[in-house]
Design a protein around this nucleic acid. Structure first.
Length: 201
DNA sequence: ACTGCGATGTCCT
DNA sequence: GGACATCGCAGTT
């Protein structure tokens, strides 16, 4: 289980480090496991797209807790998005988990993501990932060191290449290339954007 | 495969 | 009252 020292690093570093890690979720005595394949970094300082840009509010308070907390918010009135708090306590930065590659618990996900025709559609988007892994606003503020919800270390595959691109679905600060994802992975969201990224070291 | 658009709750001005 | 870190459906190529 990854601990606070892993999460307490600069937001972009944490974003990249999260790729390939495994999210473990227990729900109804079923184990769900997903590999992180797409993330976006949201900073506090100078990032107009971040919820924390204008400081701490009732909604974004969790972003200012210590690193490794889970920030869950409601998007467009009907979908949840999950973020991992980065940086030291009090900064207000987080990494959005945009897509997961389902590894375990596929039957459960097929049930809760009944609209999905193919496993690739279970968690290839921030709202879908929350649905598939049964993450809701009840989980807002949890620390990712809970028996039923945590991240586990896992190595990138030898062939994995990290790409970066502008973030998706926002209207502010669209020039900042703070989306990171695994090249060619079929579980990444919005596949039409996948070719637009550039390779990073 | 790609495009446009409606649903819908909460936050903040 | 406007904006929103989305999704899924309908219609078109």
């Amino acid at each position: 289980m990854l601990k606070t020292d892993f999460y307490e690093q600069p937001t972009n570093e944490l974003a990249k480090a999260l790729l390939g890690k495994e999210l473990v979720r227990w729900v109804d005595k079923v184990e769900l496991v997903g590999r992180v394949v797409e993330v976006e970094a949201y900073h506090q300082d100078g990032d107009e797209a971040a919820h924390s840009f204008n400081g701490k509010t009732q909604r974004n308070g969790v972003m200012f807790l210590s690193p490794g907390h889970l920030y869950v918010y409601l998007s467009y009135g009907m979908h949840c998005c999950m973020n991992v708090v980065a940086e030291p306590e009090g900064i207000g930065a987080a990494v959005l988990i945009r897509a997961l590659e389902p590894l375990k618990g596929l039957e459960y996900m097929a049930a809760v993501r009944s609209k999905a025709k193919h496993p690739r559609d279970y968690a290839n988007g921030p709202g879908k990932a929350c649905q598939a892994f049964a993450i809701s606003r009840r989980d807002n503020g949890l620390k990712l060191e809970t028996k039923s919800l945590f991240l586990r270390d896992a190595p990138l595959k030898r062939t994995d290449i990290i790409l970066q691109s502008p973030r998706i679905g926002i209207s502010k600060a669209i020039h900042l290339p703070w989306r990171y994802y695994l090249a060619g992975n079929p579980h990444v969201s919005a596949s039409k954007w996948n070719a637009s990224g550039s390779v990073i070291a």
